[in-house]
Design a protein around this nucleic acid. Structure first.
Length: 338
DNA sequence: AATCCGGGGGT
DNA sequence: ACCCCAGGATT
């Protein structure tokens, strides 16, 4: 049997069940692929179910408010994905009457669809022979064929795309998924399960005893912590939430106001009463927030702080209604402490 | 080519 | 503490 046949047979017997594998229309695959960007399957699963129940077709999504789409994305991270998916849905609904195009030159201009997602949707939904190279595929193929290009370098993806195309069988739909599934279940980053790997006898890294040396990936420097005060302004049963700016970190999401230590010096001189809670740590990919919650009861002086210090527009939200706002997890952590 | 953009899971 | 995850857009 050929390399491809071994892999396809293993996939047929061992693939996991997933909600998006019950469906084959391009919209359903598209939504799943966007949610799965840099996000593990088990994290996506509940979000996908809720999202597809609320937005079952591309036209349902296209006609929805951005704020509601964000609410369904709340907690999943990389919120620009939600914005771009929403914009992409409008493009497909308006330019293609809701029918997802089958040509690469059209697909690649849909917002939020890059090289990986294009290949994934075209192959999985339509069984077209396009590569879908993600982190799994680069790891699997780097070991199988001893490819030592640095996968942290952007152009390396093209090398793996060429490799996938040199191997591509007629069953593109299952071949691409099989490569990813092998990477997720067997050919894992740490402690790969070579002893039960269906590709063991064909794996060059295994023969060299060099599985752990692949893929080659340069490392990045770690982030320095940033220190803030998180203002929790209470007015009866309501808490002051602001909508963040429409660009940058956690863009357009809601949360309690964060102020720098310099701004905090100014606030303190205004003579207000407050209570300090335990510091909350929130880690992003490229930075770390250390937030000290400051609990303040609303009064006229506090209104002056809101007017003079806070940049974003906000409102007092009754505690029972906070769940209707797309609040980033960094701020949910603070609200949970109250 | 490098940087920005979340949050959670595994070791 | 560190790495990884079915990456894409922007600069």
């Amino acid at each position: 049997m050929s390399y491809q046949q071994y892999l396809l047979e293993w996939f047929d017997k061992n693939k996991r069940q997933m909600p998006w594998r019950e469906r084959r229309d391009a919209y359903s695959i598209w939504v799943s692929e966007v949610m799965l960007q840099q996000t593990q399957v088990d994290t996506v699963r509940p979000y996908y179910e809720r999202f597809m129940e609320r937005f079952p077709t591309v036209k349902d999504l296209a006609s929805a408010d951005k704020e509601e789409v964000y609410t369904y994305w709340q907690g999943l991270g990389y919120y620009r994905r939600a914005d771009n998916l929403h914009k992409g849905a409008k493009v497909v609904a308006e330019q293609y009457d809701g029918v997802f195009p089958m040509e690469a030159r059209l697909v690649k201009d849909i917002p939020g669809i890059g090289p990986y997602t294009m290949g994934a949707v075209l192959s999985i939904a339509f069984n077209l022979p396009y590569p879908a190279v993600d982190g799994n595929v680069m790891r699997v193929l780097s070991r199988q064929f001893l490819i030592d290009d640095d996968i942290a370098v952007a152009k390396t993806r093209k090398i793996f795309e060429a490799k996938v195309m040199s191997l591509m069988p007629e069953d593109a739909r299952n071949f691409n998924q099989a490569l990813m599934e092998l990477g997720a279940l067997i050919c894992t980053p740490k402690n790969p399960k070579c002893n039960i790997c269906p590709m063991q006898t064909l794996c060059m890294a295994y023969h060299e005893g060099a599985q752990t040396e692949y893929p080659v990936k340069s490392s990045k420097t770690k982030a320095e912590p940033e220190f803030y005060k998180a203002l929790v302004i209470k007015k009866e049963d309501s808490i002051y939430l602001e909508k963040r700016k429409d660009e940058g970190l956690l863009a357009s999401l809601w949360g309690v106001p964060l102020i720098t230590l310099e701004q905090w010096e100014v606030v303190q001189k205004m003579g207000i009463e407050f209570e300090v809670l335990d510091q909350v740590k929130h880690v992003f990919t490229h930075r770390v927030w250390m937030m000290s919650p400051i609990v303040i009861e609303y009064n006229e002086k506090v209104q002056e702080i809101i007017n003079r210090i806070l940049q974003n527009t906000g409102e007092f939200v009754p505690e029972g209604q906070i769940k209707e706002y797309p609040v980033a997890t960094a701020f949910t952590k603070i609200l949970r402490k109250l």
